[in-house]
Design a protein around this nucleic acid. Structure first.
Length: 507
RNA sequence: GUCCCGGUCGUCUAGUCCGGUCUAGGACACUAGAUUUUCAUUCUGGUAACAGGGGUUCAAUUCCCCUACGGGAUACCA
């Protein structure tokens, strides 16, 4: 049987980082097993549907190059892959379950349900669900006379279909990460399978689609672990137990406070939660996303793969191909992992430094252009090696290397007071003719000239270097002076020195 | 409340399955120093952890139990 995995997000909001990690793990396993990978949209909750969320999900997986063989965006033999377009299907299966005695109709209003729960709580009963005991005192097709049920259904009364959980049964299943799982059916509620709007709940739709689509491995977040007994019961009720997929429940992603990494919780700690910027129309909030913040997809991937999995050994830098090679469910962790921006940043810096001059130049281009600088590709490429190890994100070249795009108009006061003495001015002035006479203008030639000059003058490097840097950049930090001189070119370099000489008095 | 899942440095983790080689390793962060014309990079060093209590055993971070703690689920949400 060909392995089939699926990633099945709900478009109740933009794709977030936790879901992306689940998608990544599924993808790695799919690749490793040479199986199919399905992107299915679970949009059965009309009330929580968010416009644009589905497109966001597709863009996110494409950005990270998580590839699907079937799905809402690529089609496939099991289309449609959007559950809202499959609703008739689920209704048929729900009916089948009712007829076979595995499910029943329930007519209780939300007030009646609340009343039941309140009553149970008041009488100190621990188990407060709609279950094999409580269902006998509620209004459903198990307690109502057949004629009454028929009348209610015919009258179009709001009703749901609930799973009839067997009274005293052991439910066993194996979790690929956590091992043997054992539940007693008294702890499993008669969950709603089909809602009164005719759409299925997650439980029903999920089991049916996984079965129909031939899914062999269900890899999902730990929040689903306690719903799995319901799903196992459904596979049993449909007679699909022999092809029931393997289950694997991933430990949750946590915020720095140890709580589930939700949108709000992440935001509280300055952790971006989405891959791209997202404008929430309902609240008017703007959420910053990783890509728009300048993160490289390979850095994000390499970081999140270690949030809940580790291949052993001491290497931490892996390509996706290597992750595929090493990945296994057995090596997934049981405990949740806290998200740490500092570590993510270190991966970001690592991968940024792997970029070629041309790639980095291309990455810097948009923010340079946005800042209003019109520079050539050749110049940007010349800048790449100068800034590569001084920035964490390509866009930082504009903030940290402003002087690369415009001559300084002000000079750092602290640096100047230390390094712009009368002597500095005299030395720089004396250095100018040599520079002007230089016919070959390269990092090396300026370097050589400089060394000859300081030797002649019998002064320390710093006596000339610091004022030179001040004249060139106006600040204390930055790339090597000779490298910058080459990038600027002779004319601009001389102009900057002359400007400083003309306008900056000795400090 | 009830059910379920967890537990190694601040964080991500190796080691635990098959108990001794663990005076517990790596990475990030922090920190000290070296290199360096500045900044950054790079290099070297340092601080820092087996939740607690029982048990089994010659020996427990590793196996078992309990407690406390953390998390998840308890919806006509996924």
């Amino acid at each position: 049987m060909k392995p089939v995995l699926r990633y099945a997000p709900s478009p109740t909001g933009p794709q977030h980082i936790g879901g992306l990690r689940t998608a990544l793990y599924c993808y790695l396993l799919t690749q490793k097993l040479d199986g199919e990978f399905i992107l299915r949209i679970e949009d059965t909750d009309q009330g929580r549907f968010v416009p644009g969320a589905e497109e966001f999900i597709v863009r996110a997986v494409e950005w990270l190059d998580i590839q699907f063989t079937q799905g809402v965006h690529v089609g496939g033999p099991h289309a449609p892959y959007r559950q809202s377009e499959r609703s008739a299907l689920y209704q048929g299966y729900a009916k089948q379950l009712v007829e076979a005695g595995h499910a029943y109709y329930a007519f209780d209003t939300s007030e009646e349900l609340e009343e039941m729960r309140a009553k149970l709580e008041a009488s100190g009963i621990d188990n407060r669900g709609y279950n094999y005991i409580t269902r006998m005192s509620m209004r459903n097709s198990l307690t109502l006379p057949a004629e009454e049920v028929a009348r209610l259904v015919a009258a179009g009364t709001n009703c749901v279909v609930r799973l009839k959980v067997p009274a005293k049964a052991d439910i066993r299943f194996h979790d690929e990460i956590r091992g043997a799982q054992h539940w007693h059916s008294s702890n499993v509620d008669d969950r709603v399978l089909l809602k009164s709007d005719g759409l299925p709940t997650y439980h029903l739709a999920n089991v049916i689609d996984d079965h129909l689509m031939g899914v062999t491995h269900v890899v999902r977040g730990e929040e689903w672990l306690s719903s799995t007994p319901t799903h196992v019961l459904l596979y049993d009720a449909f007679g699909w137990r022999d092809t029931m997929p393997k289950f694997a429940h991933l430990a949750l992603l946590l915020g720095p406070n140890g709580q589930k990494l939700s949108k709000r919780n992440a935001d509280k700690f300055g952790i971006p939660i989405f891959p791209f910027d997202w404008f929430d129309e309902a609240s008017g909030e703007i959420w910053k996303g990783y890509k728009d913040l300048g993160y490289l997809p390979e850095a994000l991937l390499n970081y999140i793969v270690f949030l809940g999995w580790h291949p052993g050994g001491e290497n931490e830098i892996f390509s996706v191909a290597e992750m595929v090679e090493l990945f296994s469910l057995e090596r997934c962790h049981h405990a949740g992992a806290q998200f740490d921006m500092a570590k993510l940043k270190s991966f970001q810096e690592h991968y940024l430094r792997l970029k070629s001059d041309a790639e980095l130049a291309e990455m810097m281009r948009p923010s340079v252009a946005a800042a209003g600088y019109d520079v050539s590709d050749a110049y940007l490429q010349a800048l790449a090696p100068l800034m590569r190890e001084r920035i964490s994100f390509a866009h930082e070249v504009v903030e940290k290397g402003k002087f690369l795009f415009e001559a300084p108009t002000t000079y750092d006061a602290a640096f100047a007071s230390k390094n712009w003495k009368q002597q500095s001015i005299e030395l720089l002035t004396a250095f100018m003719p040599g520079l002007e006479a230089l016919t070959t203008w390269t990092t090396q030639s300026v370097h050589d000239l400089f060394h000859v000059f300081v030797a002649e003058q019998a002064v320390g490097f710093g006596k000339v270097m610091a004022p030179l840097r001040l004249a060139l950049t106006g600040v204390a930090a930055g790339p090597g002076c000779f490298e910058m001189a080459e990038a600027f070119g002779k004319v601009e370099t001389l102009r900057r020195i002359q400007t400083a000489l003309d306008h900056l008095p000795a400090q």
